[in-house]
Design a protein around this nucleic acid. Structure first.
Lengths: 221, 221
DNA sequence: ATGTCCAATAAAATCGATTTTTTATTTGCG
DNA sequence: CGCAAATAAAAAATCGATTTTATTGGACAT
């Protein structure tokens, strides 16, 4: 639906879209816990809207893999597991590596400029651990691969990003960053990307994910 | 939702599930043409059900990329294009290659037996160009990679399979098969998979897709 | 105690009607 | 005429109520 992280609520958004964005965030942040039953009536109250938009929003979330639908017994937030986490991490490394290569091979001045811009915005919000940062963080990572000229690949990466960040929220965000030079890593990736050093950029990006993944694993049973 | 091609309509299927399966097939086969507006009222009549199940089914199809949703202006069957086709083909080769390797690395007697079985069923239906064949054909390809122990990867492959077969239907199925030893190719892939020759199996599979893709391209403007 | 049947309850699924928004058509004016 | 505003028609989106299905909590028999 939308590749970005946070949803900038538009005036004209339908009740369904609003519900979709809210529910997505609730699930990503763990506010709606993995495996939790998502009762229509409860969500109706929580989001202050009718059953139809809720059901539609949940349906949209199904193929995002954030919600599962059980025939005649409603919806649940998708389960989490160690296996699932490993799987996401591996696929993500593999797909983003591919996407980053393409992106760099198609490099243009415009892409580079945008990259710098997005990186700057992220850095500026790095101090505060707000949702604003999370949004810009996703923007940065999507901007890196955003020039790959393959919407499908981008969609998959975006989906995997979200699935992954969910684990980050579940583990408690702060723990992930503690004692790590995340900003350094980002800057290094940026520099490699801008200097057209494909191998280096890919290596740094994958390592960035793997290291973060390693930290996260400690917090997953 | 369901990884298989055709939907075996279950007694207990909800109106939404029924609608989902029917709509999916209508879009895959081109019965609902690329870009076509999907009016709720029209579909209501066509499928003999209310608006809610239709809308829910369409929402489920959105993330399958078979349907696009436009804020306040309804749903449309996803567009097709040469670029999209190329993208699907390339991603498919790459992801299935990865999946097939994993699948073979985890090879078990049970997996092999299933593979033989599924291949047999497909072959039996090969003569008739029925939807039955299409179902078994997908089953065969999914069975090949089905042992990869990565549900996410399988889901992506399944999705790409569907997106691809849509082009096959749009081009007119017969043309794709004409003058080709499809059954030979399948048998060779099967043999390579069973004989644990990873390189060979991957090479044959990818080539199978690329050759088929080449034939198809001729029919896409 | 343990399991099975049945009623009562809760929830999901669906429908039909209403509201909102978009799209098409007409009308009026430069 | 051509264009823009107003109106009418169509469609999407949403709501509230109804129907269907699953779940829960006994009553009873083993």
């Amino acid at each position: 639906m939308d590749l970005s992280f946070g949803a900038s609520p538009n005036q004209k958004d339908s009740a369904t879209t609003l519900a979709y964005n809210k529910l997505r965030l609730l699930i990503l942040t763990g506010d709606l816990a993995p495996g939790e039953k998502l009762k229509i009536s409860a969500l109706r109250e929580k989001l202050g809207t009718g059953a139809s938009p809720i059901r539609e929003a949940l349906s949209l979330l199904v193929s995002d893999q954030l919600v599962v639908r059980h025939e005649q017994r409603g919806f649940r937030a998708a389960e989490t597991s160690r296996e699932n986490f490993d799987e996401i991490l591996e696929l993500r490394c593999s797909l983003e590596a591919k996407a980053l290569r393409k992106s760099m091979q198609n490099a243009t001045g415009k892409w580079e400029e945008n990259l710098v811009l997005v990186h700057h915005r992220m850095t500026k919000l790095a101090a505060e651990r707000s949702d604003g940062f999370e949004r810009e963080h996703k923007n940065f990572h999507m901007a890196l691969i955003g020039n790959c000229q393959s919407p499908l690949l981008l969609r998959f990466c975006s989906q995997l990003y979200d699935l992954n960040i969910r684990y980050r929220y579940l583990a408690g965000r702060s723990s992930t960053y503690k004692g790590r030079a995340i900003e350094d890593e980002h800057r290094q990736i940026l520099d490699a990307a801008l200097s057209s050093d494909e191998e280096k950029a890919v290596k740094l990006l994958v390592s960035h994910y793997e290291v973060t993944g390693g930290f996260l694993m400690a917090h997953i049973t």
